[in-house]
Amino acid sequence: MSLLAILGVLSSAIFSGTSLLYTTLGETLHQRAGIVNLGLEGIMLISAATGYRVAVETGNPYIGILVAMIVGGLTNMIIGFLVVTRKANQLASGLATMFFGFGLSALIGRDYVGVRITPLPRIPFPGTANLPLLFASLFRFDFLIYLVIPVAVLIWWLLFRTRWGLGLRAVGENADTAFASGRNPFWIKYQALGIGGMLAGLGAAHLSIAYTMNWSQFMTGGRGFIAVALVIFSKWHPLRAIGGALLFSGAVAFQLMLQSSGVRVSPFLLDTIPYLITLLVLIIWGGTRKHAAPASLGRVYQGGQQ
């Protein structure tokens, strides 16, 4: 087991974990505002396809990323309209949006499977430029990767250190009380969905434009659902999500490590570990009655005023 292999594993976990972390941060915002968004899978697919198509057409990956973000935010407005304005069931609205994403992304990306794009420039990690080429090549990341941890910190700061975040969390705990204290739950939920959708779009853009540099149908492969699991795993906390995303994406990488040291474990079984840990953590919390979930998560806010 060489150092190079370990570093390679770490590098690939960082690459595949970035899109996951952006999406998880988005879902954290949704859930903190009391909305379980199961449509992330579809939103990511639409964003990934649109962003990729724009990046191909314009030859500029940055415009592609920007468009993917905007599209993610806009697609989430469907869920906003259904769940917030029309007070529809959150799970059903999310799943319907997932199917919408399956279809629309297939249509948008139809003629773009396997088309090449201009890749994002990869910037060497500070201090690794002088390493031997083989090592240095593992630590050349695109700007979205460098940005993801600052974004996580920003979301944490917004949620826990600003009045806006306080209002958002208040809505997630009890929308009626928040309304009584002068906040507008409708508007706040829309804001959470808008920003969360943009983050999911950013994650999807990283997946298609920066990481795989490719578009294919169903390319997100369940990342939307992993993000939902990750939010729970990280106890609805943006900073804990960083470690969670690395764990979830690192399972595959870990398998490669084991394999090269002679232990043969199926990658599929290792992939289940993060889910089983999440389940275990939930059971332990359930036992100790320590609830970290936003109290009104999944409930419909029945308030009449807009």
Partner: peptide, 13 residues
């Protein structure tokens, strides 16, 4: 693509 029919399904939903 076959998946496109999901749009019609989603609109219904």
């Amino acid at each position: 693509p076959f998946a496109v029919i999901n749009i019609l399904l989603a609109f219904t939903l």
